[in-house]
């Protein structure tokens, strides 16, 4: 508890220093995909900024461009036009390796279908980003145990994904996304495969982590349950931002 309190204190100071900094800046983003002889425009005229510690969501119907925008922010895909600046890196001009390095050190991903490595145990799945970041073994163990404790899976450390429920798989994926304490976590439909009870549990964990670690979260979702927790909701339709709402008091909070 003492450790957690001191961590919280340090991070609240950090938050004060960084609260006005943008973790993501997107300008005039256009993304087109070749379809047949022409192009399909997935994103158009997108201009957005996300600040440190924001708990925001991209909301819209299927095909509105949520996942495409999330992939642009994560550096998993390149824009056709415009600029995407994430954590002070211009992703348009960054190399594959630079983008990979940014994801490795400062970002976490949560996927709809969990994307856990099936042959790894919970411990090993969560440990993966730390191995990639070359954290030494003892420290890795400590950080994994801490992350697993956050998501309440301490008793499942040696289980494999096939032995876990959907909710437990997603909690493992969350632990993997936050174990290296990234500045930004991108979550693509994290509750789409979960029932209502598990969805709320997951969201509570994420809200808690947002407050404790000062990590920025960007969700892509059309799940009403998630929206109840968001502090900022960006509506997308046909690849364009149609509405950007700041929620002073989310319906659901800790």
């Amino acid at each position: 508890m003492l450790i957690r309190a001191s961590t919280r204190l340090m991070q609240s100071k950090k938050r004060e220093n960084m609260s006005n900094k943008n973790v993501v800046e997107i300008q005039n983003l256009l993304k087109q995909f070749p379809v047949g002889g022409g192009f399909f425009t997935a994103l158009k005229d997108v201009n957005l900024q996300f600040k440190t510690g924001e708990f925001s969501g991209l909301v819209g119907p299927s095909g509105s461009g949520k996942t495409t925008l999330l992939n642009q922010i994560g550096g998993l895909d390149s824009p056709t036009e415009g600029s995407v600046n994430v954590l002070n890196m211009d992703l348009v001009n960054a190399s594959h390796n630079q983008r990979a390095d940014l994801r490795k050190t400062k970002m976490g991903f949560i996927f709809q279908s969990y994307n856990l490595l099936p042959v790894y145990t919970v411990f090993e799945n969560v440990e993966l980003p730390l191995i990639l970041n070359k954290i030494e073994s003892k420290k890795r163990k400590e950080l994994v145990e801490q992350a697993v404790e956050w998501v309440g899976l301490t008793d499942k450390l040696e289980s494999r994904p096939s032995q876990l429920s959907g909710g437990e798989c997603q909690r493992t994926a969350i632990a993997r996304a936050i174990v290296h304490k990234p500045a930004l976590v991108l979550a693509d439909e994290p509750t789409a495969n979960l029932d209502a009870k598990n969805s709320h549990q997951i969201m509570k964990i994420l809200v808690n982590l947002n407050q404790e670690l000062d990590t920025s979260f960007i969700f892509a979702t059309h799940d009403e349950k998630i929206m109840e927790y968001l502090k900022r909701i960006i509506h997308l339709d046909d690849g364009q931002v149609t509405q950007d709402d700041i929620i002073e008091k989310p319906k659901m909070s800790l």
């Binding site: 990979a100 390095d101 050190t105 970002m107 994307n115 970041n133």
Partner: peptide, 15 residues
């Protein structure tokens, strides 16, 4: 391949 995609997402380079 999904595993490869995941490895790339968590920051592993292609090489």
């Amino acid at each position: 391949r999904k595993e490869i995609g995941t490895l790339m997402a968590v920051g592993m380079t292609r090489s």
